[in-house]
Amino acid sequence: MAISLIPVEKAQSSTGPLVIVSVLNSPIERTRAPHRHARGQLLGARRGLLTVEAADHHWVVPATHAVWIPPDCVHGLRSHGPFQGWSVYVSAPGCAELPGQPCIIATSGLLREAVNRAATWGEGPLDQRQERIAHLILDEVAALPAEPFGLPLPLDPRLRRIGQALADDLADNRSLAQWAQWAGLSSRTLARRFVDETGFSFSQWRQRIRLLRALELLAAEVPVTTIALELGYDNVSAFIAMFRRAFGVTPGRYFIAVS
């Protein structure tokens, strides 16, 4: 189990600085068991795919987005592979104008730069300039709309094992029948339960998690051909066609279109 990014007493205190920012570079997967703290937390990644559980929400989240977790909300996380991430811990009074439920937001350039600046601060009270940057971070979190972008994870432990295994190896092209046998249930049960618990068919869910990973890799300027191979596509044309069906543009033009 991973330790907290900041001392527990700070995470559990509603006093002190308006925001406390922590960054982490981990060469291995990071796991944090379900826990809660008095401060709200904005959790994001610079590199890596995250599985996040918060209240009744279960998501797979790419590095292009962040998760907001209100104070005293039970949450846990797991990264898939190497992880570079950041967290903004917000004092309880500072959360008054922020969402009251866990949600996912797309991280703006302004938010990322403000977080990077706040990560360089030492301990102790914030000066006036730092206070302005802290309020800017909160203003961005409040202004950015919540997005239905994360991928729901199934609740059934057998289906959850399949989802976690797929997140660990997105190039795994085993069929639904093969996954059902691996998890010890029938193909019909797997197909039905996946729709019931996630709103997606098994094939749709696998395609969506690949799309989330593709957005992260595109943001890191990884070549499209490399992305296609990492995601299990036999050729780059098949990947580009899938991406265009989902987003209306080719991978090479996605961030131009959304900027």
Score class of each variant (00 low, 15 high):
residue 59 W to L: 08
residue 94 G to I: 03
residue 99 P to V: 03
residue 185 L to Y: 02
residue 77 L to Q: 11
residue 128 Q to M: 12
residue 197 E to M: 00
residue 161 R to S: 12
residue 105 I to F: 09
residue 85 G to P: 07
residue 122 G to L: 11
residue 179 W to Q: 09
residue 107 T to M: 14
residue 54 A to G: 08
residue 79 S to M: 07
residue 125 P to H: 05
residue 127 D to V: 04
residue 186 S to E: 07
residue 51 T to Y: 15
residue 183 A to M: 03
residue 189 T to S: 14
residue 62 P to F: 06
residue 194 F to Q: 03
residue 135 H to M: 11
residue 97 E to T: 13
residue 126 L to H: 14
residue 109 G to F: 01
residue 62 P to S: 09
residue 124 G to T: 07
residue 150 G to A: 08
residue 120 T to L: 15
residue 190 L to E: 02
residue 70 P to M: 05
residue 71 P to K: 08
residue 187 S to T: 12
residue 120 T to A: 13
residue 84 Q to N: 10
residue 175 S to V: 00
residue 90 V to E: 09
residue 127 D to S: 07
residue 85 G to K: 08
residue 63 A to T: 01
residue 108 S to Q: 05
residue 143 A to E: 09
residue 61 V to I: 15
residue 168 D to F: 09
residue 70 P to L: 08
residue 169 D to N: 15
residue 151 L to P: 02
residue 88 V to F: 00
residue 104 I to G: 00
residue 82 P to K: 06
residue 132 R to V: 12
residue 80 H to M: 11
residue 87 S to M: 04
residue 104 I to M: 02
residue 171 A to Y: 03
residue 125 P to D: 02
residue 70 P to V: 07
residue 145 P to T: 11
residue 77 L to S: 14
residue 140 E to P: 00
residue 119 A to E: 06
residue 89 Y to G: 00
residue 90 V to Y: 04
residue 61 V to K: 10
residue 127 D to G: 10
residue 188 R to N: 10
residue 99 P to L: 05
residue 165 A to W: 01
residue 97 E to L: 10
residue 164 Q to I: 14
residue 183 A to I: 00
residue 190 L to W: 06
residue 179 W to R: 09
residue 175 S to I: 00
residue 164 Q to E: 14
residue 155 L to Q: 14
residue 51 T to F: 13
residue 178 Q to G: 12
residue 165 A to I: 04
residue 148 P to S: 13
residue 100 G to I: 02
residue 127 D to L: 03
residue 59 W to V: 06
residue 157 P to E: 13
residue 155 L to M: 10
residue 186 S to T: 15
residue 90 V to L: 07
residue 177 A to Y: 01
residue 134 A to T: 05
residue 195 V to I: 05
residue 156 D to C: 10
residue 141 V to P: 01
residue 90 V to I: 14
residue 143 A to R: 15
residue 184 G to V: 08
residue 103 C to Q: 12
residue 164 Q to M: 13
residue 193 R to T: 07
residue 170 L to H: 12
residue 179 W to H: 12
residue 68 W to H: 03
residue 177 A to C: 01
